[in-house]
Each structure stands twice: as structure tokens, then as C-alpha cells.
Design a protein around this nucleic acid. Structure first.
Lengths: 203, 203
DNA sequence: GATATATGACTGACCAGTCAGTCATAATAC
DNA sequence: GTATTATGACTGACTGGTCAGTCATATATC
């Protein structure tokens, strides 16, 4: 039990994590431009110069932050590839995972950060599109098309517009950030209602 | 045809409009923090000091900009109040208006600005919630509830979560700003597909 | 004591907001 | 109608403060 952590008590990896965690807090609270590296440093318990030992500059810090939080999700995605399951099961799995692993965690803040700052960071937008959005669509689309052929779905709308599947989740994230204090939104219930509309209410 | 516009060629109102138009461009392109008033002035063909003759400060300029673009929509809303029409007709009208008057105009940039900066401008978020979001919900909810009772809708999901109605539009706006260059999205078709899912495809 | 790591005072660029001065136009005088 | 004076909208150089990024120095580690 180290009574008081001496300097350099943390491993380089742990220090990097501490800086990323602090950066998440600051970027989330103030946006990219508004976040100050002095505050990130203070929050991470580190001097400002130390940040520059781990990250080239503010933009790299931001991009590495996004990547570090998006990466684990890519692993989950891999598991869902090349499966042949009923459409409803896929969508329920996808949305439940989303509620649990993204809406229920700090990752929702990353989604918001990407949506908010993405147009000013083409590299981030492209990275996210290529690594996440395109992959999810590539998984979902053929399964929805098959479901439409089989008559599990009344038509091919979801195959043509897989965006319709996650749209309510994104709105849930935005609502939570902007309007929850005026009118709280029960996002898990929202998602259940959404699934009911897409596939007909379960009995 | 004035060969070269003399000083004070514009009416005060026109000058105010010019500044707001320039501000829309700059805030849209760079976000609130990123926008520089020097650039707004240059774009409006005005000296920086002039901006301060019309607006108290940067924040006021931003808020007045949002209000000036949201205001006309409030008028449209009024016309939709206290009607008793079939749910499908209301939703189609609402979404078509959205596509035409918001997605098809610069107003979509205002929506994005509100979604992006709203959490850092509680005044804006509250204004937008109270003046727009809450009103739309107040109009839509009873009509959806009635439709559910009448059997026009299979259940009361849309009455409980009117957010499900506009969610695809918001995703359309975001997609357009972030991912359209990688994979274009046909938003009017998206909306038609969405209506088909909500109410069953029209024959 | 040599190397690796960390610090935080410092620098320079940047930018919101200011204000003394300008000048086109309006008002008044003749 | 012309000259003189007054007005205030407009200008842009300037100021004060902020903050990303640097680097000489300090501290830990072996």
C-alpha cells in the first residue's frame, strides 16, 4: 500500500490512460476548441508538458482519444459478422448492445463528439465511417435484404436504409445531452418501442 | 446600377441581415468557438466594429442568429395546432415540411448548430426545447394517441415517443454533414421508407 | 553520474471587444 | 442654390487576455 504515490508511480501506460480519461472529460464538457490542455493536465494530475511526451499535439490527442474508445467496439462487431440470423434477432442484439455498451457508458460522449466535431475533422469522420458505420451497414444490409425476401419484413426499407435502425439511438443520445432536464427520455423503452414498430410488437 | 456602392448604401436592416448571413456561414463552417468575428465582418463587407453596433457580443450574435432562423418555423407550427386529422396525414405533412423547409434550406445548418453547441448554450437549448420541440410534441402526441385508440396505429408507441417520428430526419442532417461524400443518402426516399414502416406501405 | 522522464514558466500567435477618428449625408444659414 | 456646420454610422488599429506548444531545469531510476 503506497502511502503517498511518489512521482512516476504510474506506468507509462497508466499515465497515457489518465491523460486520455482527462481529455475525455474536458472534450466532452467543452468541445474540441473549448477544451484547454492546461485543464486536461490538471485533471490528469500531470504537467502540461507531460501531455506532449505522449501526444504530438491537441489534434492528435483528440484523434487518439476517439480511436481508443471506438476500438473496443470494433471487436464486438467482428463477432457479428457473417451470421445468418433472423432480422429481428440481429436488430434486437444490435440495439441492446448499443444501449448497454454505448448509451450506458462514456462511449455515448464519443458518439456525440464525433457527430459534433466530425465535420471539422474530416480524418475523424472518415475513420469513423470506414471503421464503424460502413461495417455495421455491411453486416446489417444483407440480413435485412434476406429477411425481406423471406417475408420476415414487409419490404426492403431496412435493407435500403439501415440508418432507420439506429436513428432513435442517436436521437436518444442527443436528447439526453440537450433536453433531458426539461423532459427525461427513457431510452431503453424508446428502443423497445422502436423494435416493436419495425417488427410488430412481440406478443 | 450603382457602379461602386457608396458608404452607407445599405439600410440598417439590410446590414443586420448581411451580418447574420455571414455569421451563419462562419458558425456553420467552424462552430461557435472556431468562428472569428473578423471573418464574419469581412464576409459581411463590414468592419469588425460595425458588428458591435448591431449585436452586443459574439454570444448574442449567435443567439440572435438561431432565433432569427427558428422564428419563421414557429409560424408554420401555429397552423398545425388543434387539428384533428389522421395520424398518417399529420406525419406525412410534418415530415414533408421538414424535408422542404429545413433539410432543403440553410435551416438544416441551424439544427446542426443547435445539436452541436446546445449543451454549451443552455439558453439556446432551452429556447429551442420550449419554442419548437415541446410544441411539436404537444401537437403530435394527442393525435397519435387518438390514432392508436381508433386502430389507425397498432399501439401507442408513437404517442409515448414522438421522437421516433423525426429521428430519421435528424440522422439525415447529420449524415449529410459527415458521411455524404463517402456514401450519399437520399433523404426524401429515407423519409418515404420511414413513413412506410410507421404506417404500412401505401398501396 | 548517466539516462529517462517530468515540470511549469515562458513565448508568440490569436482573437474578442474597444474607441478615437473619419466622412457621407443631413440640417441649417445665408 | 451654395456654403457651413452638425451628426452618427462606420472604421480598423489597438489592447488585454487566453492558450497551444516549447524548453531549460529538476527529479527519479538504474
Amino acid at each position: 500500500m503506497p502511502a503517498r504515490p511518489k512521482r512516476r508511480a504510474l506506468s507509462p501506460e497508466a499515465r497515457r490512460e489518465a491523460i486520455l480519461a482527462a481529455a475525455l472529460d474536458e472534450f466532452t464538457a467543452r468541445g474540441y476548441e473549448g477544451a484547454r490542455l492546461d485543464d486536461v493536465a490538471k485533471r490528469a494530475g500531470v504537467a502540461k508538458g507531460t501531455i506532449y511526451l505522449y501526444f504530438a499535439d491537441k489534434e492528435t490527442l483528440f484523434q487518439d482519444l476517439v480511436r481508443s474508445l471506438v476500438h473496443p467496439v470494433l471487436g464486438m462487431l467482428e463477432k457479428t459478422r457473417d451470421v445468418d440470423i433472423p432480422a429481428r434477432m440481429l436488430v434486437e442484439g444490435l440495439l441492446n448492445t448499443f444501449v448497454r455498451e454505448i448509451y450506458g457508458t462514456r462511449r455515448k460522449d464519443i458518439i456525440r463528439l464525433i457527430l459534433n466535431e466530425g465535420s471539422r475533422f474530416p480524418a475523424i469522420a472518415e475513420f469513423y465511417y470506414r471503421e464503424v458505420v460502413a461495417r455495421v451497414i455491411a453486416i446489417v444490409r444483407p440480413i435485412m435484404a434476406r429477411a425481406a425476401e423471406r417475408g420476415e419484413l414487409p419490404n426492403d426499407s431496412l435493407a435500403r436504409f439501415p440508418q432507420l435502425i439506429i436513428a432513435p439511438m442517436l436521437v436518444g443520445i442527443m436528447w439526453h445531452a440537450l433536453f433531458d432536464k426539461f423532459e427525461p427520455l427513457d431510452v431503453p423503452a424508446l428502443v423497445r418501442a422502436h423494435i416493436g414498430i419495425l417488427f410488430g410488437s412481440a406478443k
